[in-house]
Design a protein around this nucleic acid. Structure first.
Length: 594
RNA sequence: GGUCCCGUAGUUCAAUGGAUAGAAUAGAAGUUUCCUAAACUUUAGAUGUGAGUUCGAUUCUCGCCGGGACCA
């Protein structure tokens, strides 16, 4: 049980015993004590004073005396300042904590809880390569999956590939018109980029046709509809739906190029999936559910034959679920797919990592599933993350302001190489070891940057300024890890060093590390319940900073005594371990040397 | 027209209604005979605006100003 939990329970019990008032441990507010006051943890008393009709000082004294007396091995003292009861945890508690955990690689990770959770993320379109926004999505999805695993869940990672529709046909038409049979191979280009180029070419040609038609007196709207290239694209979509052989062949070819490209990117950034769904297989799902819904009276039919659901009572609008021509809409597929996943995996929760522009969509999706009485309904959770913006505003593929994922990753790795070469600390590394190190550092910087902020909030990425390897960054933490590993290699830490160190006392900077380390399990748990990797990122950063302060202040190898040395090695060992585990759940590797 | 989200140092981000609003970076000043200076230490700098609820508001409620997303 964590120290914080113990304090909460002790406080609740004390109040119960002293004043005969029933109180839940969770009603007690416990914070870390601010550095300017004596103590480690602080109980906020204001919340009780009204009920108890006591002055904060008197209450603090009574509580403090009782709690410390009842838990003499845990606390050594207390003080009361204004409405705050500051408790000091005994050094022997921290030392015992260190001794039992410093060689436990699984420290912080919870035991299996038997619950299955699905995480759907990435969701690429097969008409263009991945960009910065996809990176945030992939890093978040992967990290959430790892965090949920660490807190005891069984996790199934899924991906829905958007491989059909009008936008896919655009790239296909442009390829037919402009490629002269070129392929990624003949052009020496990565497949997804190759196809993406034709998507751009389509838009350029389309724009030009619209201008031409406007010169001939058409309005913008007419021109958009009548442009030959657009008409051809719409015809192609119909041909695709009719399974026309030549269209299907082209579609298979172009998608396979894209998948080859995606595979390279996914491997590089560390995304993988247990199950991939393709929209071309799932887009007809959910049609039968429309009839079910009609029969149940959940949906209603309008005069033109279209089918709707009325969500005005839930504060939303009426939403169409089947067009008058009988074709289904986007949300119908999603309902069908939710049903399908439920049948296949039967998970308790299904997390969708999708941008916040789809908040409304997912609200509607969940509501409809609930009204239909689908077993998957209550487990639907939309992890809505904010857009990544540039200093100039939102990224727009049509305006060429998109930051390409592959380019960015490559740039990060290049900078990692430059920095490493400048510092010249790993001159004995082989070429392969160096390449791996640059990957670890470059990707570490990028992932940490995108994961260190609250997922729900939109964030700004400045290509010139955001790439930093100092301060609140991945490389800073990786460096701390490498340095600790170096110390341990030189000083040695073995079973035989686990001697009795009960006599040792801790300096403030040593205690600060122990206190941080002890919080790790609850941080992981908090990150899991909030679906928020930034909690972990901020925590590890603070841990690394705390360690670095201690490191400059005290020597480990030349400690004042053998006991001190052992304690410090244990602190170092567990810090390295927690950094590694914490970074791993963010999808970031840590080097042994850098 | 309707629904929802966001405004915190120059910049990028923190802060379950709790102590003097934390970091990082950019700025200023320092630290290297000793375990990796991608580090450490010191310093200056912010809650859009007006009310309300509260012992206490960055946090909750309402208005205004500014930015964004979605639905039709």
């Amino acid at each position: 049980m964590s120290v914080v939990t113990q304090i909460k329970e002790a406080t609740a019990k004390a109040i119960n015993h002293l004043f005969s008032i029933e109180l839940q441990a969770n009603d007690v507010l416990v914070n870390e004590t601010k550095p300017e006051f004596a103590g480690d943890y602080t109980v906020v008393l204001f919340t009780f004073i009204k009920q108890l009709k006591k002055s904060p000082d008197a209450l603090g004294q009574e509580l403090g005396e009782y709690i410390v007396a009842q838990h003499s091995s845990l606390f050594t003292g207390f003080n009361v300042i204004k409405g705050f009861l500051n408790l000091t945890v005994s050094d022997s508690y921290w030392l015992a904590f260190l001794g039992t955990n410093y060689q436990n690689p699984g420290f912080g990770q919870a035991a299996d809880n038997g619950q299955k959770v699905m995480v759907e993320y990435s969701s690429p379109n097969t008409n263009k390569p991945l960009h910065l926004g996809h990176l945030r999505n992939n890093f978040l999805g992967r990290s959430i999956a790892e965090i949920l695993k660490a807190s005891g869940n069984e996790v199934v990672k899924t991906c829905i590939v958007n491989d059909r529709g009008i936008h896919i046909c655009k790239s296909m038409i442009a390829w037919q018109l402009f490629a002269n049979g070129a392929t990624p191979k003949t052009e020496g280009k990565k497949g997804d980029h190759f196809v993406g180029d034709y998507y751009v070419k389509f838009n350029d040609a389309y724009k030009k046709e619209i201008e031409d038609l406007k010169v001939k007196g058409k309005t913008q709207e007419e021109a958009e509809k009548e442009a030959p290239i657009m008409k051809a694209t719409q015809q192609m979509l119909l041909d695709w739906e009719a399974d026309k052989p030549d269209v299907m062949e082209l579609w298979h070819n172009m998608n396979s190029w894209v998948y080859e490209g995606f595979a390279i990117t996914y491997k590089k950034i560390g995304s993988d999936f247990d199950k991939t769904y393709y929209e071309s297989n799932t887009y007809l799902l959910g049609k039968d559910l429309v009839d079910t819904g009609l029969a149940k009276g959940v949906f209603f039919q309008k005069e033109d034959g279209s089918v709707w659901i009325d969500l005005t009572a839930d504060g939303l609008d009426e939403k169409i679920v089947r067009r008058k021509d009988g074709t289904s809409v986007y949300i119908t597929q999603d309902i069908g797919l939710a049903e399908q996943k439920q049948k296949e995996f039967n998970s308790a929760q299904s997390i969708y990592v999708v941008g916040d522009e789809q908040n409304y969509h997912f609200k509607v999706l969940k509501l409809i599933c609930q009204k239909l009485g689908l077993p998957s309904a209550d487990g639907i959770f939309h992890l809505s993350y904010g857009m990544v913006e540039l200093p100039t505003g939102k990224m727009k593929s049509r305006e060429g302001t998109v930051v390409d994922a592959d380019d960015l990753v490559e740039e990060m790795i290049n900078i990692a190489r430059q920095k490493t070469e400048e510092l010249g600390k790993v001159k004995d590394f082989t070429t392969e070891e160096l390449a791996e190190l640059y990957d670890i550092i470059g990707l570490g910087a990028l992932k940490f940057f995108l994961l260190r902020v609250d997922p729900r909030k939109k964030m700004v990425f400045n290509p010139e300024e955001s790439i930093d390897f100092h301060g609140f960054t991945g490389p800073f933490i990786q460096y701390t890890h490498a340095r600790i590993k170096s110390i341990i290699r030189k000083s040695g830490i073995t079973q035989s060093t686990t001697s009795n160190h009960k006599a040792a006392t801790l300096f403030p900077s040593e205690k600060a590390i122990a206190l941080h380390l002890e919080m790790f399990p609850s941080v992981l748990e908090e990150a899991a319940t909030n679906h928020d990797p930034s909690k972990v990122a901020i925590y590890i950063f603070n841990l690394a900073k705390t360690f670095n302060s201690f490191y400059t202040e005290h020597s480990i190898a030349n400690a004042e005594s053998e006991e001190k040395k052992i304690v410090r090695l244990q602190l170092s060992q567990l810090t390295a371990q927690v950094i590694k585990t914490g970074m791993n759940v963010l999808g970031i590797r840590v080097p042994e040397r850098m």
